Deep mutational scan, measured.
Amino acid sequence: TRRLSELRVIDLRAELKKRNLDTGGNKSVLMERLKKAVKEEGQD
């Protein structure tokens, strides 16, 4: 898996959309949101 920081905004939005998460905001907001989601998934 590529590091989140290497993803483009369009990629971040696609990942968030797959998880039914909000896709609004700038790159840093999107990255934080996705990071949190990935962390929570890992705790399942």
Rank of each mutant, 00 (worst) to 15 (best):
I10N: 13
K18W: 04
I10W: 10
K18P: 04
L21P: 10
K17N: 06
G42H: 15
A37C: 09
K36Y: 05
A14M: 15
V9Y: 00
E40Y: 00
R2D: 15
D22L: 03
T1M: 13
A14G: 09
G24L: 10
V9R: 05
E41T: 06
E6A: 05
V38D: 09
V29Q: 11
S28H: 10
K39C: 11
N26H: 01
V29G: 05
D22N: 00
N20L: 06
L16K: 03
K27C: 06
L16W: 00
N26A: 12
L34E: 14
A37P: 02
R8K: 10
T1R: 08
V9A: 10
V38I: 08
R19D: 03
N20V: 03
L7R: 07
E41S: 09
K36F: 06
L16Y: 00
R8N: 04
T23G: 04
G42P: 10
T1D: 14
D11Y: 00
S5A: 13
V9D: 13
L21C: 07
V29I: 01
I10P: 15
K36T: 12
V38R: 11
G24P: 00
D44S: 13
D44G: 14
N20P: 03
G42Q: 13
E41H: 10
K27I: 03
K35M: 10
R8C: 10
R3E: 15
L7Y: 07
E41A: 09
K36G: 12
R3Q: 11
S28G: 12
L7K: 07
V29W: 00
R33Y: 01
V38Y: 08
A14V: 09
L4M: 14
K17A: 14
E15L: 00
N26G: 14
L34T: 09
L4W: 01
M31K: 04
T1I: 12
G42T: 14
K17V: 11
R2I: 07
N26E: 15
R19S: 04
E40T: 08
D44W: 03
A37N: 10
E6K: 06
V29E: 15
R19V: 03
G25F: 00
A14E: 14
M31T: 06
G42E: 15
N26Y: 02
E40D: 13
E32P: 02
V9Q: 05
T1E: 15
L34P: 12
R33H: 04
S28R: 15
T23E: 09
E32T: 10
G25K: 01
R2M: 14
L30C: 05
K18T: 07
S5C: 05
E40G: 12
S5M: 07
G24Q: 07
E41G: 11
L30K: 03
G42C: 03
L12Y: 02
D22G: 08
L4S: 09
L7E: 13
R2S: 14
K35V: 13
